[in-house]
Write a protein that binds this DNA or RNA. Structure first.
Length: 400
RNA sequence: GUGGUCGUAGCUCAGUUGGUUAGAGCGAUAGAUUGUGGAUCUAUAGGUCGUGGGUUCAAGCCCCAUCUUCCACC
């Protein structure tokens, strides 16, 4: 039994010409920073409100690895999680999740979900994929079986999964990449986007609530391509826009340059999502450029490998120097694991390859990232963001 | 006691008819990791080749003694 969404009744929801008959998620900007393009706002979905800017923990296969949804929700206060179309499509299969009543019902997470379309995964498959005019033929990394993914297919699958925000099917342009290929790749992403938008308009969510489709800017590291792509994406009138193809190996300065350029073109009154970014410093710098949404595997994947992000800097908990450090992971932390466990104990867990080590580090890191976003929102609302950011970037990235 | 066998890095082991500075895997110590492989990759440290003699231009390798491991037989 799917609950009737209260947000279907929102009065000032508006219809966009290209997204006719779709009720959008709302975005309201509450505060703006005077010294940068940072802003703090509120996003409304059928599964609840999200304060921005925010970070989305990555739950590839429908779960954030090494975490219960209770911790994700009640301990670290995640507002939304990200999941992956490609992985869920291959396993357990869309039919199973649809039969469960959608991804929210399947994994028990009742807050908002965003699904990535699978474009990035197919990009990272490397040799076992082939582009055609229609889409991409790729081989499953699980059993080698062949699959054809098209823009229409990506939309259909995401309709069945039922995430609140779904992503257009794009090609994540590799780096480095010459301008000719970057242009061809961008054009392909634009062509696919048109098909995604068209198909999105003809279909609806299978599980009784609304979904929003975000298009993705490409263009590699070429300013003129980024500008062209951002204009095309902006012209679609979507309720939120994403920037892809960054943080794929290019220097950080280039990433900021492209992000700033694109943010200046994408609509000011819609949320902007910088895909796959990044380190705490990357995120703070990008907030200053006007980004509202982030996702990244760093806090979870690197956490599982022993890298801890703390308010005073970065720790490799496997280093010998922590073996007899009985101080808590984060003295001023507000996550259970921060005060409950010492550095020496966590090191012991990692050295012993205990599963608990991955659990503690994941909880801690995500707690830290989400605290960082909350603090950023507070600093923006109080008008102190830029000075605070300057101090934090240095402090957070130093090695302890 | 007799005969055979084993001994090389923290661990498990390679090491050619004697020939450059004795290697590997694991472990250890560090580093990488950006729309997820609990994955992977990279680097570094670590050896009186059981011990003591001998042969030889040259010995982990051949010879002698001795200690040690395991096996068989009295």
């Amino acid at each position: 039994m799917v609950e009737k969404s209260p947000h279907n009744k929102i009065k000032n929801s508006y219809l966009c010409p290209k997204f006719s008959n779709i009720i959008h998620l709302q975005f309201e900007i509450l505060h703006r920073d005077s010294y940068s393009s940072a802003r703090a706002g509120l996003l409304t979905t059928d599964h609840g409100l999200i304060e921005s800017p925010f970070f989305m923990p990555v739950g590839t296969a429908g779960a954030v690895k090494a975490m219960h949804i209770r911790e994700l929700s009640d301990d670290i206060h995640a507002q939304i999680m990200l999941s992956n179309t490609y992985h869920l499509y291959l396993r357990p299969g869309v039919d199973i999740i649809s039969k469960a009543g959608g991804l929210h019902k399947f994994n028990g997470w009742s807050k908002p979900i965003l699904t990535d379309s699978g474009g990035y995964q197919i990009y990272s498959l490397g040799d076992i994929r082939k582009f055609t005019d229609d889409g991409v033929i790729f081989q499953s990394h699980i059993d080698g079986s062949k699959h054809l993914f098209t823009p229409e297919k990506a939309i259909d699958v995401q309709r069945e999964l039922g995430a609140d925000i779904i992503m257009a099917f794009d090609e994540c342009t590799p780096y480095p990449c010459d301008e000719a290929y970057a242009r061809k790749s961008m054009k392909r992403t634009h062509y696919w986007l048109s098909r995604c938008v068209s198909h999105f308009g003809k279909t609806e969510c299978q599980h009784g609530y609304t979904q929003s489709l975000f298009p993705i800017v490409q263009g590699s590291v070429y300013p003129e391509l980024r500008v062209e792509s951002a204009r095309f994406i902006a012209s679609q009138g979507a309720s939120g826009n994403a920037i892809g193809g960054l943080s794929v190996g290019e220097p950080a300065g280039m990433m900021y340059e492209m992000t700033g350029l694109v943010c200046g073109i994408l609509p000011e009154d819609k949320p902007r999502y910088l895909m796959g970014v990044g380190t705490p410093a990357n995120i703070l710098e990008s907030i200053a450029l006007g980004i509202d949404m982030f996702d990244c595997v760093i806090p979870t994947r690197n956490g599982r490998n022993g890298m801890l992000f703390t308010r005073s800097g970065i720790i490799n908990i496997k280093n010998e120097k922590w073996k007899d450090d009985f101080s808590p992971l984060e003295r001023d932390g507000d996550v259970f694991a921060d005060l409950q466990y010492t550095k020496a104990f966590l090191r012991h867990m990692f050295i012993s390859k205990e599963i608990l080590g991955a659990m503690i580090a994941t909880t801690h890191n995500l707690g830290f990232y989400i605290w960082l976003m909350k603090e950023a929102r507070k600093q923006i609302s109080e008008g102190t963001f830029s000075a605070w950011k300057g101090r934090m970037v240095k402090q957070l990235m130093q090695r302890l």
